[in-house]
Simulated scan of single mutants.
Amino acid sequence: MYLEVESLEKRYGHLAPSVADLSFSLGQGELLGLLGPSGCGKTTTLRMISGLVQATSGKIKVGGQDVTRLPTYRRNMGVMFQSYALFPHMTIAENVAFGLQMRKIRKQDIAKRVASALAMVRLEGVADRKPRELSGGQQQRVALARALVVEPDILLLDEPLSNLDAKLRDNMRNEIREIQQRLRMTTVFVTHDQTEAMAICDRIVVMNRGKLEQIGTPLDIYERPATPMVAEFVGRINRLDGQWRNDGAIAVGDSLVRANASGGAGRVLIMIRPHRIDLEAAGEASVGSPEANVVVGTIRHINYVGDTLQYAVATAAGLLQVEKATSSATDPFQPGDSVTLRWKTRDTLTFSSEATG
Results as ranks from 00 to 15, higher is better:
Gly283Met: 00
Thr315Arg: 00
Asp165Thr: 05
Phe24Glu: 03
Tyr84Gly: 13
Met185Ile: 15
Gly210Thr: 04
Gly336His: 14
Lys59Phe: 12
Ala16Met: 06
Gly125Ser: 14
Arg106Trp: 06
Leu31Ile: 12
Gly27Leu: 07
Glu178Thr: 15
Met198Asp: 09
Ser286Leu: 14
Gln180Met: 04
Asp241Phe: 10
Pro17Asp: 01
Lys211Phe: 04
Val287Ser: 13
Ile299Thr: 07
Gly264Ala: 08
Pro332Phe: 03
Ile215Lys: 05
Ile154Phe: 11
Leu269Trp: 07
Lys112Thr: 00
Pro131Ala: 14
Leu320Glu: 10
Arg74Ser: 12
Ala166Val: 06
Ser25Cys: 12
Gly357Lys: 13
Leu144Tyr: 13
Gly33Val: 11
Val79Gly: 05
Pro290Val: 02
Ile270Asp: 00
Lys324Ile: 13
Ile221Cys: 04
Ala292Trp: 05
Ser23Asn: 06
Ser18Cys: 10
Lys324Ala: 15
Thr348Leu: 00
Ala317Ile: 02
Val296Leu: 08
Glu133His: 11
Ala251Lys: 03
Thr298Val: 15
Leu26Asn: 02
Glu196Gln: 05
Leu240Glu: 03
Asn238Thr: 00
Arg75Glu: 11
Leu32Asp: 01
Val296Asp: 14
Pro332Trp: 07
Leu31Ser: 08
Gln334Phe: 06
Glu291Ile: 08
Glu151Gln: 14
Cys40Arg: 09
Gly266His: 05
Arg267Ala: 15
Leu148Lys: 09
Ala316Tyr: 01
Gln243Ser: 10
Lys112Tyr: 00
Glu30Phe: 02
Trp244Gln: 01
Pro37Gly: 08
Phe189Tyr: 15
Arg173Phe: 01
Glu6His: 14
Tyr311Arg: 08
Glu223Val: 03
Gly78Ala: 12
Gly41Thr: 07
Leu3Asp: 07
Gln138Arg: 13
Arg103Glu: 04
Phe351Thr: 03
Glu124His: 06
Gly137Lys: 12
Pro228Asp: 14
Asp128Val: 01
Leu3Gln: 08
Ala93Trp: 08
Gly248Lys: 03
Ser352Tyr: 07
Gly357Leu: 14
Pro228Leu: 09
Asp241Ser: 15
Met120Ala: 01
Arg122Ser: 13
Gly318Cys: 11
His275Gln: 15
Pro160Tyr: 08
Val5His: 04
Ser338Leu: 07
Phe233Ala: 05
Gln101Asp: 12
Ile277Phe: 00
Glu280Gly: 02
Asp21Gln: 06
Ile250Gly: 00
Pro131Val: 11
Ala282Glu: 09
Asp307Gly: 15
Val190Gly: 09
Ile105Glu: 06
Pro225Val: 03
Leu26His: 03
Asp347Asn: 08
Val234Gln: 04
Tyr73Val: 12
Lys61Trp: 10
Ala251His: 00
His192Phe: 01
Gln28Arg: 14
Gly137Asp: 13
Lys59Asp: 10
Ala97Arg: 09
Asp347Gln: 02
Leu256Asp: 00
Val296Gln: 15
Asp21Gly: 05
Gly33Gln: 10
Ala249Asn: 02
Leu134Gln: 10
Ile272Asp: 02
Gln194Lys: 09
Leu212Thr: 04
Met48Leu: 12
Val5Arg: 04
Leu35Ser: 02
